[in-house]
Amino acid sequence: MTGAETAIVVIAVVAVLTWVGVVAATRLDRIHRKVVASRLALDAQLVRRAAVATELAGSGVLDPASSLLVAEAASAVTQDAEDARNELALALPDLDEESVRSVRAGLNGSVAESRVRAESELSEILRTAFGDPDEIRALAEDPDAAPLVHALGAAWYRAQLARRFHNMAVAHARQYRRHWSVRLLRLAGHAPMPVTVDLDDALPDGLDHGSVSVVGG
Rank of each mutant, 00 (worst) to 15 (best):
A65L: 14
A65Q: 12
S66T: 08
S66Q: 14
S66C: 03
S67W: 02
S67Y: 02
S67Q: 08
S67N: 07
S67I: 07
S67H: 02
L68R: 04
L68G: 06
L69G: 00
L69F: 12
L69V: 15
L69Y: 04
L69K: 08
V70H: 00
V70E: 00
V70I: 13
V70C: 00
A71T: 09
A71M: 11
A71G: 07
A71K: 05
A71D: 13
E72S: 13
E72I: 07
E72W: 03
E72Q: 11
E72H: 10
E72T: 14
A73E: 10
A73T: 15
A73P: 01
A74L: 04
A74W: 00
S75M: 15
S75T: 15
S75H: 13
S75A: 14
S75N: 15
A76S: 11
A76Y: 01
A76V: 10
A76I: 09
T78L: 15
T78Y: 01
T78S: 11
T78N: 06
T78A: 12
T78G: 06
Q79W: 05
Q79Y: 04
D80R: 04
D80T: 06
D80Q: 04
A81D: 03
A81E: 10
A81I: 12
E82T: 06
E82Y: 09
E82I: 12
D83A: 10
D83G: 12
D83C: 04
R85E: 13
R85K: 11
R85D: 11
N86R: 10
E87A: 14
E87R: 10
E87D: 14
E87K: 05
E87F: 12
L88W: 02
L88D: 12
L88A: 15
A89I: 02
A89Y: 05
A89E: 03
A89V: 09
A89F: 13
A89N: 07
L90E: 11
L90Y: 05
A91M: 06
A91L: 15
A91G: 05
A91P: 01
L92D: 05
L92Q: 03
L92M: 12
L92T: 13
P93Q: 08
P93F: 01
P93K: 02
D94I: 02
D94R: 06
D94N: 10
D94L: 03
L95R: 03
L95V: 08
L95T: 04
L95Q: 02
D96C: 09
D96W: 05
D96Q: 07
D96K: 02
D96Y: 03
D96S: 09
D96T: 10
D96I: 11
E97V: 14
E97P: 05
E97F: 02
E98G: 03
E98S: 15
S99W: 07
S99G: 08
V100Q: 08
V100P: 00
V100Y: 06
V100C: 05
V100M: 06
R101Q: 10
R101K: 12
R101I: 10
R101T: 13
R101V: 12
S102N: 07
S102C: 03
V103T: 14
V103N: 00
